[in-house]
């Protein structure tokens, strides 16, 4: 088990407090069972331990750390997908979403069907996603492919569709797990520009990235797990 130190430091020289804390984590710990059962002593992997963190309204917070440091676990905790083993998470009445690209895509179904299904899984209502189908087709640059089964898509086309479906999401707190690297170079630039708009509007964003440089470029504050 590794000792996890939390180093909260400003990414830029001037620290500014952006309004009130909207999500607070107190002494949060998460462990995953590695093996064990009826006749064997259980073994656990401690993904997070005694984590304290406040997320402020309007800030862009970068999360860095090596593989297995618990970055994705942290996002899942904040998104409410998993509950911690110890400690508590207080949400002061804000909506939180983890931006998942291509969640629930079915390869036998057409792009349109997948957009509807994926959108609804992310939390859109059916009417909301249906009203945006044309925009999605246009942004993903899929054209007639939109009516073809997703199994005929290239990897890039799939992620373009996934990104186009997800990009309308504006929860109070948006959680991004390495999503700024989709598609080919041209689309990545377009996707990044669209995502940066979110990072720089008044939305609160948590961004997980392997790239320290990216965190430095876009975040108000970073934490290292």
């Amino acid at each position: 088990m590794s000792a996890i130190q939390l180093d909260v430091s400003p990414a830029s020289p001037i620290i500014k407090q952006k309004g009130e804390a909207i999500i607070s984590l107190q002494n949060v710990g998460v462990r995953y069972k590695q093996r064990g059962g009826l006749f064997q002593k259980s073994q656990y992997y401690q993904a997070l331990k005694d984590l304290n963190l406040e997320i402020y309204r309007g800030e862009t917070l970068g999360v860095v750390g090596r593989n297995g440091a618990g970055k994705s676990t942290l996002l899942k905790l904040i998104a409410g997908i998993i509950k911690p083993d110890s400690g508590s998470i207080t949400n002061h009445g804000v909506t939180v979403s983890l931006l998942a690209l291509g969640a629930g895509f079915e390869s036998e179904l057409s792009g349109v069907d997948n957009a509807i299904l994926g959108g609804m899984l992310l939390g859109y209502r059916r009417a909301q996603i249906e009203a945006r189908l044309e925009d999605i087709r246009e942004f993903a640059e899929l054209g007639d492919f939109m009516d073809q089964p997703v199994k005929t898509y290239s990897t890039g086309m799939r992620s373009r569709l996934g990104f186009a479906v997800a990009m309308y999401m504006t929860p109070d707190v948006l959680l991004l797990d390495e999503v700024l690297s989709v598609g080919d170079q041209h689309f990545r630039k377009k996707a990044e520009a669209e995502m940066m708009k979110k990072l720089h509007s008044d939305q609160t964003v948590l961004l997980v990235s392997h790239s320290e440089d990216q965190i430095k470029r876009v975040c108000d504050r970073k934490i290292a797990l």
Partner: peptide, 25 residues
């Protein structure tokens, strides 16, 4: 053009989602 998703799905939205997923399956 933006959509703010609810923290919890409304039960009607949940049923619609189950219905849609079953139909598409």
């Amino acid at each position: 053009n933006k959509i703010s998703p609810p923290t919890r799905r409304h039960w009607l939205a949940f049923i619609d989602l189950v219905w849609t997923k079953a139909r598409l399956n």
